[in-house]
Design a protein around this nucleic acid. Structure first.
Lengths: 222, 222
DNA sequence: GGCCTTGTTATGCAAGTGTATAAATAGCCT
DNA sequence: AGGCTATTTATACACTTGCATAACAAGGCC
């Protein structure tokens, strides 16, 4: 029974905790990505983001010059995380190049890289990349890093097969394989339930190996 | 010298012409796509769109129940146009299945299908598809139509080679080829200047034919 | 314990948003 | 030519947006 005897002020100011700077920035970026994934760039308002980070809107301006910068940093963080995860699949000691390539493809065509939320973010930001040079650069760097990684593995695989491709052939292989992975990734993210588990990865490996002209592993149907 | 003698009223009402209903709707949809491509979903306001269509904002409500419906119709129109263009490359009389497949790949990896504006639109809308069932359905239908088209050509090509793939193999080929085209399409749209003219198409044809296990056309390097 | 810094909240504001409604006029019909 | 109707413009409104600024208090320091 809230009455005159109630000692609590009825217009209590919101309680809060001071967090470390890095932690707050991280939380705000995460909240931004969540908001964008759920409501799109249009629906990701400062107030929505702040609410998700359990903070009031004004605080954002204490860490970021403006909304634009927050979005850019969020996208940069996203791209960084994506390529980092992708490359992580490559660090396998004592595995043949061909196995490492297969593992790379498999990793990129399963969770957590195949993920509707990440895809939504990827597409949303990329749609604005053609108009925003900062976003375009963030994407470009991630993309080239990924493709170089692919090219390096391809070179190893072919070397293990005693083949000496020139730079142009290597580049073409990398472009093609990159396209295969990207294309299957999109299909998986958009319509994951249309594929049985592991199906996309199996298709990816087969297609990549065909592109490289590697002999089928064992069974030769048609 | 605009003075008291000037017969023209100083607050003249805007002159306008009455257009046919279909024409106006078409114009408004086109203006919407332009706005979204340039400013993103967030920047595509009714006033911006109306300005581009050379009309005042209120008129939009005369043709569409609300902004959402306008955006949905615009996306549907875009998807329809894209798949239509893609399929158009398939109607070649007296050409071998393999030639038709190659022509299909080539058409999809050159202008006007490789186009930064279309890509921007595609990505922007797709980013919101996971949250908007109407957009998701529009995309799904376009995608399945495209893939069925691919599957049909693949079946013809393999039949011409006396091969009898079962339904599962056919499906896998279609998925893979669709991914190759999509992936290369994205690369071309986002970084067209990194590729020489025709390079993407050449890579696409080679990769697709490798995936299908077709013997190389003539020259056999490694 | 009391103070001081600064992270945090609260409030305000001008600009812009989508939508509703009233007023005007273009162009067809007779 | 003159009237009718529906397309089009104009205006208003309630609400949201990003940003600015002032008030406040959390937590380290002496």
């Amino acid at each position: 029974m809230p009455d005159a005897a109630d000692p609590a002020p009825m217009n209590a100011r919101r309680k809060f905790r001071r967090e470390g700077e890095e932690r707050r920035r991280q939380d705000l970026i995460e909240a931004t990505l969540d908001s964008v994934a759920e409501h799109g760039l249009e629906g990701a308002t400062l107030r929505t983001i702040a609410l998700r980070a359990d903070v009031t809107a004004g605080l954002i301006r204490h860490y970021f010059p403006g909304k634009e910068e927050l979005l850019q940093e969020a996208y940069t963080a996203l791209v960084g995380r994506m390529t980092e995860q992708a490359k992580a699949a490559l660090v396998m000691e004592d595995a043949s190049p061909r196995q490492r390539l297969a593992a790379f493809v498999t990793a990129n065509l399963n969770a957590p890289i195949i993920d509707a939320r990440v895809f939504s973010l990827w597409a949303t930001f990329l749609g604005r990349a053609s108009a925003d040079p900062t976003l375009a650069r963030a994407h470009r760097e991630g993309y080239l890093g990924f493709r170089n990684e692919v090219e390096a593995v391809v070179a190893e695989v072919l070397a293990a097969e005693q083949r000496k491709p020139d730079a142009s052939q290597l580049r073409h292989h990398a472009i093609a394989i990159n396209a295969i992975i990207d294309g299957l990734w999109i299909e998986g993210c958009l319509a994951g339930e249309m594929f049985s588990p592991g199906e996309l990865a199996a298709i990816g490996i087969k297609t990549v190996e065909a592109e490289l002209g590697l002999a089928p592993e064992r069974e030769e149907n048609q």
